[in-house]
Design a protein around this nucleic acid. Sequence first.
DNA 1: GGCTGATGTTTTCGATGTAAACATTGTTCT
DNA 2: AGAACAATGTTTACATCGAAAACATCAGCC
Lengths: 210, 210
Amino acid sequence: MARSSYHHGDLRQSLIECACAQLRQDSADHLSLRALARKAGVSQTAPYRHFETKNALFAAVATYGFLLMTDHLKVARDRHEGDVQEAVVQVGLAYVEWALANPEKYQLFFDSALVDYGAHEDLHEAGCDCFEVILGLIRTGIEQDIFLDQPAEELAATLWASVHGFASLLQSKDPNAMQQHQDAPVVKGMAALSMRRRQVIELFVNSIRR
Amino acid sequence: MARSSYHHGDLRQSLIECACAQLRQDSADHLSLRALARKAGVSQTAPYRHFETKNALFAAVATYGFLLMTDHLKVARDRHEGDVQEAVVQVGLAYVEWALANPEKYQLFFDSALVDYGAHEDLHEAGCDCFEVILGLIRTGIEQDIFLDQPAEELAATLWASVHGFASLLQSKDPNAMQQHQDAPVVKGMAALSMRRRQVIELFVNSIRR
DNA sequence: GGCTGATGTTTTCGATGTAAACATTGTTCT
DNA sequence: AGAACAATGTTTACATCGAAAACATCAGCC
């Protein structure tokens, strides 16, 4: 972490990754640019050379997150090139898995309080690219008469809403973290859903089938 | 807003409602207890008599929100007492509507960074009560052989995930606020979904039908 | 009428976001 | 090679914030 030269080398990316690590341990409103700067071994205002404001850093983290997630989804998709139906299910699974493995980044995607899509064009594009993975598959599926004959954007958005809700709920009602309330119906339901993940996603996919 | 007596009267509830109003205009991390205190016409540390920390205030806002939402859902449910299938659809619609009408409260429900369910038992209960509205309907539906023969908690959680995803996405990709990107597929899809709200929810409900 | 607990106030502290002026380095043009 | 310039990092400064501590005022009960 120590730095011999005056310049850091890649402070921007360092800050993004430090922020991810930090966000995993503590909530977003406890994250301070100053603490990040310290951890990166840099003066307290150095981050402002790379991010106009704290929210701009969050936007950068989210953008970075979208890039990672998009790659992850593409890998899942490419493993099932011949079978669109199965590819969609696998991408859905991969979506939920990535969200659960990277909660700090995933939550930023939808936290309009912390991140302003309007002010960061690259973030918007990164989000669109991610959606395109789902959208492309749905388009193929519609061509092959697998999915309902409706606008592809609409079906893709429907599916996205389902898997997003699934991932988001699993995060916020994480059965592992809710041990004190193991017997609450909500928690029981989410635990069951979590275990039957594949079937649940198949249910979502089936709901837009012909 | 001026106060004649030394005591405020109902500072606790006032702060909760001031916080809601404020959260609508500015993001959560820009909300300060001091500003709330000023708006309530009270000294800067008075709020600490009612909320141990800033997060405790957020938890209280969320709890209050759950109470309101639960009432809203119950009204929708009771309007269709004979017809479970329709009641579920209407509750789903009411859920999405309430979420869109009260984004600042709704987002708190799922913002584990701002709100700690483990530390606030009443919040957890309020959330459970809200879930019970859905769960109760699903139970009745299962008894009447309308829904899949699976654990009620699981079906209810599935449905909840769907409507939550729907509401959450609609909020974060609000077509009205994304005019700069009207032609992006994501936005087109969400706009379409928003207009065909009832059909989308019927789709979700059908996915757990027999 | 005075005691007690609940509620509100004042004072105070260290930490934070961010602006401004300055220092150092890498790059590019001659 | 050397000079100008842009990019990056530093120092200093300020208003604001969350929160703790000690104190003030009120309401209800004996």
